[in-house]
């Protein structure tokens, strides 16, 4: 019963969360007015400006990035059968971070679109690298892929540290960018992430049964007729697209991709046919709420990555304790 209800609940919650996030802020709007503005009904011009032009792009960016991260995390946890896997485990995000840092430090001053472009390129290069490094003779052992990803991530992070050290006067900006940011979101950015989300989701959602078979072991999946190497390559490509899109436009937002799939699994079980769609909707709502927290806790604004980490970590520990006791 709970398993069947999870998807309708997750879908129904998203518009409520969107309306809430569009209502709350420095210029508070009544929840009803925010909903009316979102539905295109008649409201005054100020409300429409605040809700549709100022807040909605940011909320939409949070939603698409949260969905992308949760999808990527859920898929990788399933592929590796490893509860610690998250979207950043393959080093793709470290490539994105390095790419963004290089652009922020060395080049293209004043070109606003440049850091996302650098991040996306860095993530794409890292994804190709990890794929090439983990593959031997057309076969990509999952254990090797995981280790190659972790090692590549550590190497790229070391390079990032070197870049920060070499350009200390810009290090603060870079760190702030990397910690996760959704402020100043524009519709063009939302559109770019939405394309990544659509591509990644389509690649993953058409392989949910194959991912289920992987949970029984790679050999069992092969004996069930799953083309295992093609499926692995497809999941790798999907997560690379999702992570590159997310990192390029928001930096490294932690814990959403790790915690949301686990939390969703409590409701849906392991079946990816339910898990992936619910995780996407739950990830969207979660990051919208985290970002709402980031812009409401103090005067000014916290990087949203700090909120997701600060709340996601303890939340994960509570879930962990519950499952250990069960």
């Amino acid at each position: 019963m709970r398993r069947a209800l999870a998807l309708p609940v997750a879908i129904a919650a998203l518009p409520v969360v969107v309306a809430l996030a569009c209502a709350v802020g420095q210029e508070p709007v009544a929840l009803g007015d925010a909903a009316r503005a979102l539905l295109g009904l008649d409201v005054d011009a100020d409300t429409r400006l605040v809700v549709l032009d100022l807040r909605l792009p940011r909320v939409a960016l949070a939603a698409t990035i949260g969905a992308a991260l949760a999808l990527a995390g859920a898929a990788l946890q399933g592929l590796f059968k490893n509860p610690l896997a998250d979207p950043y485990v393959l080093g793709i995000s470290a490539g994105g971070a390095l790419g963004a840092a290089l652009v922020l430090v060395f080049g293209a001053a004043g070109v606003v679109a440049a850091p996302p472009a650098g991040a996306f390129l860095g993530a794409a290069i890292a994804a190709v690298l990890v794929w090439r490094l983990a593959q031997v003779g057309g076969v990509m052992p999952l254990g090797g892929l995981l280790l190659a990803g972790v090692a590549l991530g550590l190497t790229l992070s070391a390079a990032l540290s070197a870049v920060l050290l070499a350009a200390r006067e810009r290090a603060g900006d870079v760190l702030l960018w990397l910690m996760g940011h959704l402020g100043g979101a524009r519709w063009s950015e939302v559109g770019a992430v939405a394309i990544c989300l659509a591509v990644g989701a389509a690649l993953l959602l058409s392989k949910v049964s194959e991912l289920n078979a992987f949970l029984l072991g790679e050999d069992v999946a092969a004996s069930l007729g799953v083309p295992v190497e093609r499926t692995k390559a497809r999941v790798l490509l999907a997560t690379a697209v999702l992570v590159a899109g997310a990192v390029a436009f928001s930096g490294l937002i932690g814990f959403v991709g790790l915690v949301v799939p686990h939390a969703v699994r409590f409701a849906t079980g392991a079946d990816h046919r339910r898990l992936l769609p619910v995780a996407a909707f739950a990830g969207a709502s979660t990051l919208i709420l985290a970002d709402l927290g980031a812009r409401s806790v103090v005067v000014g604004e916290l990087p949203v990555g700090i909120i997701t980490g600060a709340l996601g970590g303890p939340f994960f520990l509570v879930l962990l304790r519950r499952s250990l006791r069960a």
């Binding site: 059968k81 029984l216 004996s223 069930l224 007729g225 392991a270």
Partner: peptide, 30 residues
């Protein structure tokens, strides 16, 4: 091949969150 030939491994990889019905249904994958 998977429609003609089924294989039961030595170590049954546990997928503890699956239900019995979900695992058995995976047999229809091919």
């Amino acid at each position: 091949r998977a429609r003609r030939l089924a294989w039961v491994p030595q170590d049954t990889d546990a997928a503890p969150d699956f239900t019995v019905g979900e695992v058995v249904a995976l047999g229809r994958l091919p």
